[in-house]
Design a protein around this nucleic acid. Structure first.
Lengths: 240, 240
DNA sequence: CGCGGGTTTGAATGAGTTCAATCACGGTGG
DNA sequence: CCACCGTGATTGAACTCATTCAAACCCGCG
């Protein structure tokens, strides 16, 4: 809960009333181990999910095994708010780490935001941001070099995590295997490794078993033309 | 209007009442010549647009001139429904052909759908489809070869046009310069030309000054793994 | 110790780019 | 009517970035 509240707290002044409205929603808390499915291809979507903790990916696998990750889902992220109409999912969602998620029936969710304009606005913002992230992903893999792609992606994850984490350190650990970065960026694992080495040599990042540390955020953002404004993180701060 | 109605008619049974609700919306009809801007980067978004006729592109230009087209906007398409909150656009929209568009103030739009559940549902579907198109674009440029990309894109445009055009011919003209395809697919113009030649040699398409004809839709869909279900065109038909 | 998953490195290959020249074509003006 | 342009499409050759295949490596864990 706290991550979601921190998240939408960026967008609107959320009051106690709205907060309880969210909290009282009938929901189920579920957990998934790394690699377990959350939404399968072809499954009906009749609930929305909120990631309470952990990481998940939304992806599609082509016939011959090629996999493309559409986006990463971090604590505080909600999905599939768009699938609120009877439809079957055309892609899968899978846990990367251990994931705790809150499942709310679509109907309950709708009635919860019905008379709470500020909540509705907040979730609208969440959708706007989600779509902006997809657009940015298109630009990234369509027109950027491998080095730019990787740097840009790392910075996006960094900023998104910073928005929900209380710790505002400049170097944030990203516990993510290179295979995931490869499938997200449309690159081969080998080339991600090489490119990451380059970023390391140039002093932008450091790697270790726990993940990737960003050492020179500003320089890297400059190098890969990362502008965080598409994430719309510049809104009001939470005041509970 | 008719294209939009045909479009959302795919999703819900739209009645006369809803139809008039749409039609009576206070709006401005504007036109743009080829190459003229519709939405500029950094502009406030306080209206939604409906393409009445013509084609437009949504894109971003990087510092050094690289351009990535995010998606194509065809007759019946609506945007920026997501930008309904005070925000500045982080990308531009430009007319490709002569474009006629209907501009509706965000507030008017919201109140128009407020008491018309079927309309609200229809526009929800439009958003769902829009997001699905973005996801498909990510998969396309992330993990498909140039030949697959091109074929897949042509088929998507073909299907989307067929959904709003009355003519249900199997071979549809696509009046689109190769430079646009290149920037949409993340390829160079030269390589689009070569790849298109290949599609031509293999009998999938024919080209001439008026555009591109798709000759073997089924074979091409098979070759590039195109499944049209993400477009959600399999809904109810219009009954006015 | 030995196994296994993820990472790194090297060498060969390949897909797509870049540069530059040519072509096709419709429009314009003499 | 024809010469001239300009834009978009095509072709060739050299080049580059990224992939593939294969081997080595690292490290945590049973």
């Amino acid at each position: 809960m706290k991550h979601l509240v921190a998240r939408i707290g960026h967008y609107v002044d959320i009051g106690l009333d709205e907060f309880h409205g969210l909290n009282d929603l009938t929901h189920r808390i579920e957990t998934r181990r790394p690699g377990e499915d959350i939404v399968r291809v072809g499954e009906d979507v009749d609930s929305i999910f909120v990631i309470e903790s952990g990481w998940a990916i939304r992806f599609r696998i082509l016939d011959d095994g090629r996999r493309q990750i559409i986006n990463f889902m971090l604590p505080g992220d909600c999905f599939d708010m768009m699938g609120m109409v009877k439809a079957k999912s055309d892609h899968a969602v899978t846990a990367v780490t251990e994931v705790v998620l809150r499942r709310v029936a679509t109907n309950d969710f709708l009635s919860a935001i019905y008379n709470r304009p500020s909540l509705a606005t907040a979730f609208w913002w969440v959708s706007v941001q989600e779509e902006a992230i997809l657009r940015e992903q298109i630009i990234r893999i369509g027109r950027r070099s491998a080095k730019e792609r990787l740097a840009h992606m790392l910075l996006e994850l960094n900023r998104r995590l910073a928005a929900v984490e209380e710790t505002q350190t400049d170097t944030i650990k990203l516990p993510i295997p290179q295979a995931l970065l490869a499938d997200a960026l449309g690159l081969s694992i080998v080339h991600v490794s090489r490119t990451l080495s380059k970023l390391r040599e140039e002093g932008y990042v450091a790697t270790h078993s726990a993940g990737i540390d960003i050492l020179d955020r500003q320089g890297m953002a400059n190098m890969c033309d990362f502008k965080s404004n598409y994430l719309h993180l510049d809104k009001l701060k939470l005041n509970l």
